[in-house]
Design a protein around this nucleic acid. Structure first.
Lengths: 202, 202, 202, 202
DNA sequence: CATGAATGAGCGTTCATTCAT
DNA sequence: AATGAATGAACGCTCATTCAT
C-alpha cells in the first residue's frame, strides 16, 4: 500500500535537489539536505535514485523540457520568424531577469559540474542541442523567408551566439545580479539579434 | 635562505589549483590534487595559503588582471571607439575559442562557486565590474564621438550585454565546446555588437 | 527501527569520551579513540553529535547532575546544617579518594579546557555554580540556626572555599595521587570546615 | 658570533610558552605561536629544546622554583610556625587572587597535561612535593612548638590539605574566577588552616 | 515504501619536527 | 645561532551509500 507513488516521490526529490543546489551548489547539496528539502528521510533517496548524480540528470531534464516546449509553442504560434525569435528571446531572458532564480542558479551549477562529469556533460550538451535546434530552425526559416541575413555565418553559429547570450546572462544573474540593470537583458539581446541577423532596427 | 621563495611557491600553487580545477572543478580540486599538480606535499599548501578559498581568490586575480591590462592596452591604442571595441571582442573571444581552455574552465567554476560563497561572489563581482568598466568606457566614448547609438539602453546595460556574451561563450566552451563552430564566436559577437550599438554592417 | 536508539548511542559516546579523556586528556581524546572506546566507527560520532565539543558539554552535564542530586538528597535528609555539611564533604571527597578516578581525571581536563573554550567555560562555571549554591544554602541555614559563624566572610565566600578544596583534591588525585594519604581528604576537610565556620572540634 | 646567549633564548622561549599556554592551553600552544610570542622563528625553538614537552618541563621548574624560594624565605624569617604558615598562605593565595593570571592558567594546564604525560606527571608531582615539604616542615615545627594539633592526621596529610586548597583556588581562578569573591581566598584559607591545626580564632 | 543508524573513504586543516640554507 | 620552507601524520568533520528494521 504505497504512501506515495514513485513518480510523485521522484518529483519531490528532484525539487529538493533544485532547492538545495540553488542554495549550496551541487557538491554541497548533500543527500541529507536534499532529503530535508523534500521532506523525506535520506535513506529513501536511494530507493528512488541510484545515485546523487542520477537526480541531477533528472533535474536537467526537468529544467529544460518545459522551456523547450514553451519555446516550441512560441515559435509555432508566431506570425513570422522575426516575431518568433523575439518572443523566444523575451521568454528565455525573463528567467534570468528574476522569474526563476533557483532554476537559473541550478543551471549554472550544472554547467560547472559538466566540466568534470562526462554524464552531466552529455546531458548538458544535449540540452543545449535542443535549444540550439529551436533557434537554428527559426533562423533557417527566417533566412528562407528573406527576413534574416547572416553574412558569413551559418544558422548554427548564429543560434550558438544567441544561446551563449542566454547562458551568459544566466551566469551573471546567478552570482552577480547587481551588474545587470533590471529589464535590460531582453531589449539588449533583441538589439544584438537584429545585428546578428541583419534586421532593421525596431 | 629557504629552499624556494614564497612568491614562487604561491605561483606554483595557484597554477596547481588552475590545473586541478579545470579538470575536476573547484569542489573536487582537493588539496592533495593541487599539491600533486604543483609538485609539492599537501602540508605545504597551508604554509603558503590560509585556506583553499584563499588560493581561489588569488587565482581569480591572476586570471583577470592580465586580461584587464591587455584590454586596456587595446582600448588605448585603437584608432576609434569602434576599433577599440572590436579589438576587445576579438581578444576576449579568442580565449573561449581555444587559446586557454584551462583558464576558461576555471573561470566557469568560479562563477558557479560564487553562488554559494560570499567571498568568491565578491571577487567574481569585482572582476566583472572591472570588465564592465572597460566596456562601459569604450561605449561612452563611442556615444560621445557619435559612432554608437544605444537606443533606450544606457552604456552600462550595453556593457553588461557584451560581458554576458563573453561569459556565455566561456560557459559553453568549457562544457560543450562542440556546439560552438570554431572561429564563429568573435564574428558573431561583432555582428551582435553592431546591432546593439547601431553600427552599420562591416 | 534503527539498529540502536539515539539515546543509547549518545550515552555510549559520552562514556567513550570519559574513558578516552581520563586516559589521554581532552585534546588527545580523538574522535577515533572515542569511537574505539564506544565500540563504534568514527563516522557515527558526528551522526549523533554536532562536534567533539558537544560531547564534552554533554559529559559535563552527565558528571555534575548526579552529584548535585546526591548532595541535595544528603542536605535534605540531614538532621542539622552541620550534619548536612559533613555528609556533603564526605560524599564529594569520596570521589577524589578513589571511587571514580575516570570521572575525576575528566573533570580536571574540563577545568583546563575551560581556560580556552568559552562554551566549556560557561558549562564549567555553571556546574560550579550549582555546587556553590548547595554549599551556600547549607551555610546560610547553619548561620540562621546559630550553628555556623563565618567572621568577616559571607556564605558565598565560604562555599567557594569548600568547593576549592574539592577541586584541589580532585586535581591532585588526578595527576599525583601519591601525595594524598588515602582516607585523609575527608577528615582534613571536615577539620578545615570547622575552622571556617567556627564549629567546635569533633 | 652569537646574537643572543643560549640561556637568554631559552628564557624567552619558556616565557613564550607561558604566554601561548595561558591563552590557548598546552595542546593548542603551537610551536609557531610560542615562537611568535618569543619574537623568534619556529626553527630556532628546536635548536634550544629537543621537543615541545621539554619546554613545558622547563616552564614547570620556572614556575615553581621562585615560589618555593619565596615561601622558604617567609618560613625562615617568621617569628613563629603560626606566623610562617599564615604568611605562606597569604603569599600563595595572592597569586590565585589576581597577581599572576598567566602563571595560574599555565599551572592548571600543567596539572591536566600531567594526566596523560608521565614526564609531565613526574615534574608536576615533584613540584607538589616541594610545596608539600615546605608546609610539612612548618606544621611539624608547629606541632613540636605546641602551637598546632592535628588530631588523627599526620603532618603530611595536613600539608596535602593546604596544598589542595591552593590548587583548587588556582583551578577556579583560571576558568571561573567570578565564583571567588575578590580577596576572600586568603582569609578563608587562614580560617580553614586554624580549624585544621586546632589554632584559636584570630 | 520508508526509516535512520551505520560505514568508510575522503576532505581541509594543523602541527611537531626536520633540514637546506 | 638562526631562518623559514618542507614534510607527513594526525586531526575533526562531511558525506554518498548501504542496510537492518
Amino acid at each position: 500500500m504505497p504512501r506515495k507513488s514513485t513518480d510523485e516521490r521522484r518529483q519531490e526529490i528532484i525539487q529538493g535537489l533544485l532547492e538545495a543546489m540553488s542554495e549550496h551548489g551541487y557538491a554541497k547539496a548533500s543527500i541529507k539536505k536534499i532529503a530535508d528539502a523534500a521532506g523525506i528521510t535520506p535513506g529513501l533517496i536511494h530507493y528512488h535514485f541510484d545515485s546523487k548524480q542520477a537526480i541531477l540528470l533528472a533535474l536537467v531534464d526537468e529544467l529544460v523540457t518545459p522551456q523547450v516546449a514553451a519555446l516550441e509553442e512560441l515559435a509555432r504560434t508566431a506570425d513570422s520568424p522575426t516575431a518568433a525569435l523575439m518572443a523566444m528571446i523575451d521568454h528565455l531572458l525573463a528567467m534570468g531577469d528574476a522569474a526563476q532564480p533557483d532554476a537559473v542558479a541550478a543551471w549554472v551549477s550544472v554547467g560547472a559540474e559538466a566540466i568534470r562529469e562526462p554524464d552531466i556533460a552529455a546531458a548538458y550538451s544535449e540540452s543545449l542541442a535542443r535549444l540550439l535546434g529551436l533557434f537554428s530552425d527559426v533562423i533557417t526559416d527566417g533566412q528562407q523567408a528573406g527576413e534574416f541575413s547572416t553574412g558569413d555565418l551559418n544558422a548554427h553559429a548564429c543560434a550558438a551566439a544567441l544561446v551563449a547570450i542566454m547562458e551568459g546572462y544566466f551566469t551573471i544573474a546567478a552570482s552577480a545580479r547587481e551588474h545587470i540593470p533590471p529589464g535590460s537583458a531582453a531589449p539588449a539581446t533583441r538589439r544584438m539579434a537584429r545585428g546578428l541577423l541583419d534586421l532593421p532596427a525596431e
